Computed example of a mutant assay.
Amino acid sequence: MGWRLIIKKKAMTKILNERNVKILQAVLKHFISTAEPVGSRTISKKYLRDLSPATIRNAMSDLEDSGFLKQPHPSAGRVPTDRAYRFYVDNLCKIPKPSHRDSEAIKKKLESNRTEAMETILQSSKVLSDLSNQASIILLPKFANITFKRIELIKTGAFQVLVVFISKSGVVQNKLINLKDDLTQDKLDSISRYLNDQFNNLTLREVRKKIVSTMKREKRIYNNLLKKAMELIQKAFIEDEIEGDFYIAGTTNIFDKPEFSDDLKKMKGILSAFEEKSKLMYILDQCLKEEGTSIIIGSENRIHEMQDCSLVTHTYKYGANVLGTVGIFGPKRMEYPKIISLVDYTANILSNKLSDS
């Protein structure tokens, strides 16, 4: 694991002097690779041979008092705390590029011209899970954020219409709506042509604003076609906000990790958390607001059952329009430089693919 820290001056304190940072780094390196608590003798023998076990032991005690290390039980060595992981992540000197093997695997999965947009988005989650050996999660494009390309209206029965929305990025959304009037397919085709002419290249959020503005301005709409179009699109795009959704791949990878494989309670807690859709959506929405990379470590996560894990995400786009976020979810002792690199690269390749479609 070839990473190192460059400590910003403002982060240096009496406890986090150069020597103690090296010891903290050694503890992190050992625990990330082994999942085992580590003592001063091991640190001295394997990582810092120029320091005696006694010197390291005193420094580890100081780091524990300062909240960077803890002992799982009195006779054990030390392990990093959430504060240690946060300090480490905030002071990473450089994020490496993915290996040639990993970058080629990502491009092969996502750059194929044969797959549809939504399938490409789902594939990004699958390839991240495979390459990281962790769980992956992707926030799918929210209906309000995608850009209008074309709409099709298909009569499915009396007073019932299937609205097929096709975005610029190739994402397709369907919605079945009920109407007050029983419109013919010819009438629906005329409405489709009107809507496609009026709302092309707008996001659904912009479509909603334009509809509301038009309906306020035209209190007495003289054109029957316009009236029917406005009523229909209001039902499709305004009355019921389509809730966001996400996709998770590779959950079994988490349960192969030592910290979870022997702890049934933790395993059940994580599975339960994956079913808490509203809470997960809240966290992913927060990541979506932080354009670029977001890292949530342990207790920073508001879902209690997920506080033994970390989440690394990066937003993906269609052009300049943010569509969603893709990320990796796993134990706090993940290899952050590698994980950040994989997530960032995948998000960028996905964005390019969607924008070029």
Rank of each mutant, 00 (worst) to 15 (best):
P72E: 07
D90P: 00
K187S: 10
V312F: 02
K257N: 11
A54C: 00
P98I: 02
K257I: 12
S99Q: 06
R193A: 09
R193L: 11
G292W: 08
E291L: 13
P53T: 07
K317D: 03
Q173F: 15
I15L: 03
L195P: 00
R49F: 09
M267T: 14
F246W: 05
I106G: 03
Y316V: 01
K94W: 10
I106T: 04
S357N: 15
F246Y: 15
L5C: 04
E241R: 13
L51P: 05
I303L: 13
N200S: 12
R86D: 11
Y47S: 06
E218R: 09
V79L: 03
V27D: 02
H73I: 01
F68P: 05
D186P: 00
R57Q: 10
Q25S: 11
E243D: 15
S341E: 02
E300V: 04
M1G: 11
K227L: 15
S294G: 07
V21K: 02
R333W: 13
T251K: 14
P98Q: 04
Y194A: 05
K265G: 07
I233G: 07
M334E: 04
K332R: 15
S40W: 00
I242T: 13
K8F: 07
D130F: 08
L28V: 05
L24T: 03
C93P: 00
A35K: 11
M60R: 02
P72L: 10
L264Y: 14
T325L: 03
D186F: 07
Y282G: 09
G292A: 05
L342W: 03
A59P: 00
K97G: 02
K257E: 15
D256Y: 13
E64L: 05
L183A: 06
V161Y: 04
R150V: 03
G298F: 09
L323G: 07
F199L: 10
I177H: 10
I7A: 10
I221L: 06
Y194T: 03
P258T: 10
A158K: 14
V38N: 04
K94N: 08
K353D: 03
